[in-house]
Write a protein that binds this DNA or RNA. Structure first.
Lengths: 192, 192, 192, 192
DNA sequence: GATGAATGAGTTTTCATTCAT
DNA sequence: CATGAATGAAAACTCATTCAT
């Protein structure tokens, strides 16, 4: 019962944050959309920022959880790479609402900044491990591996944002995008 | 004289937006930092958002301007690629303040969103042209080229943000980061 | 059972009103401290103010009750005076919690103001009677007796508040305080 | 100009606090009464409590200032005593608004409590000095002098509150009240 | 009797913007 | 051009009280 109302609030907030942005969305908008009273909001969240933090945390955790687990069957070479890209895109596609919110609303506060930063750091560590396991960069220093990892994250995030959020394409693009990203890398070298 | 004050306001705003974010920075903070009166602000800018838009526009233009022009000497293969990455990193390094502001403050309004989107679109077109000239992807469709271009942008932006803004490293990293990004791509293929 | 809960509520309220004041204490604080549900409060009290009124009334009644009855053995001169002071101090000591609350929380509402005023009026009448019986002021008008009575009340209240509440001293001070007050009056005259 | 508005706010607040009490008076009431905009209030005071503190501080300081200075001509015996009582009553009469506010509104916060306590302590020290100079209580310990001082304060405060605030009498009562208080003390002794 | 989730009217507070000087 | 006191609409948040279970 209580969880129902809390859920309504979260759903309403997600919808409105995505549509109009965090700062443009008033608590009164959220409760109207959720069909609850003003006070009910503060029964479940300490403040508007607390709600945003809670949403951000949950979604970022979902993303990192999804990327944490490697491919089911062992695979080699850039199959891992392909898997990683494809998997990331899928996760981003399903979380395109929050991705949009994080991208478009930036850092609402110091606390959100820390959460966001911790998320990227964790993502980077996961990717770095994948890169090591995969063995594609044998003589890279830790620092170089980190640069490589961050670049992968940025790549996927930007393309996902442009394709799924800005242009509004559906999941049918996931495979072809992944293919382009992986092929592109190969091609660059086949040039040499 | 007047331009002096306008400049002071812009400098103060850049500093404060970077330190505390757009929404957290009050006009009264900006004018105090700039050493001008409250009303003076509105002699030079129509609104707080107008100031942000003006700053964003100028900086994004500077970035796109810097990337618009190809390498001075003709070069081949992934030399162009290396040049592009290195050039982007340099530009991002010098504009790390605004990069940080755009990253951390997201889309302050519909108008800013449009400016930001237009910027990414223009960037994408520039990169796409570079990719075509370079000839690295002969049989790519326009769409595939766009995906490739966006992925480059995301890659550079994320690494630059993490290295220059979050970790605070200096320009001495530009070359080694560029090297990692380019090499990494090569390596991926040398694996096959 | 029911009375148990009511008692818990009263005890909790007394504690919290004393610690943090009436206006700073929320009904939710009281019920949490009392270990009952929010709704239970309204089974026993019509409102938060009703609770305060109930507490204030009970305590003020206790105080006036204690002062109503003269000394057990007939006594003369300022023995009555000493008895009165000492008795008042004792009563105030035992009701220092409510004294503190009344002092520190002032008049929560028109109704409380009336109760408080009625209390002081009643006290004044009691003291006035004591003064008359004692015969210390033979040719005083009613008005002059009232002034004298109020001054006694203020004297005891202030000293009790400062000694028992602010400085936290114990009942062992009652006698010496009474002595000072009575002696002081005498001394003033012995000067002449 | 600016001070004009600030003054209006203070006047309005004094009036309303006295009429309806601190907690019953809304900032919106104050600004309406003062004829200024809502925001103007926060130009001069950080919060409603800040205003109350500011008023309380100023008035308590005025009272203690008025009592600090002894009688102009040297005088002996209980002439000093009479002077002190009369002077206190006069001061209390002129500050009956704030006296009423402090009495009726109690301690709005921890900070106000501290201010109030500091005021009583200072008053007590002043009275104690007067008592010493006067020499009426030669062999009193410091502690006994403090009890005596607090009892004087309570006496005057209560009578002033009852006469000037509750019953609304005018300054013509000051002398007769002072007379009663001083005479009463004498009489008590003349009885023995 | 007892519960505690839900309410919503009511308050404080903020801050971009204006305009008389 | 420059000022800065004044504005007031708009927002977040509070909490005593209710009522269905």
């Amino acid at each position: 019962m209580g969880e129902d109302k809390k859920n309504n609030i979260v759903e309403a907030a997600l919808k409105l944050f995505e549509e109009q942005g965090y700062h443009q969305t008033k608590v009164s908008d959220i409760v109207r959309e959720a069909g609850v009273a003003q006070g009910t909001f503060y029964l479940y969240f300490q403040s508007k920022e607390d709600l945003f933090r809670s949403i951000a945390e949950a979604c970022l955790e979902e993303i990192s959880e999804a990327l944490k687990h490697g491919p089911h069957a062992p695979c080699q070479n850039n199959e891992v790479y392909y898997w990683m890209i494809q998997r990331s895109l899928t996760v981003y596609y399903h979380n395109r609402a929050i991705l949009s919110i994080m991208y478009r609303n930036g850092i609402a506060s110091q606390e959100i900044r820390d959460i966001s930063q911790a998320f990227y750091h964790e993502m980077m560590l996961i990717i770095k491990e994948h890169l090591k396991e995969w063995g594609g960069c044998p003589d890279y220093s830790e620092e170089q591996l980190e640069i490589a990892a961050y670049s992968k994250i940025g790549m996927v995030e930007m393309v996902a944002y442009q394709w799924f959020v800005v242009q509004g394409h559906g999941p049918e693009y996931i495979d072809s995008i992944a293919q382009v990203i992986v092929d592109m890398d190969s091609m660059e070298v086949s040039e040499e």
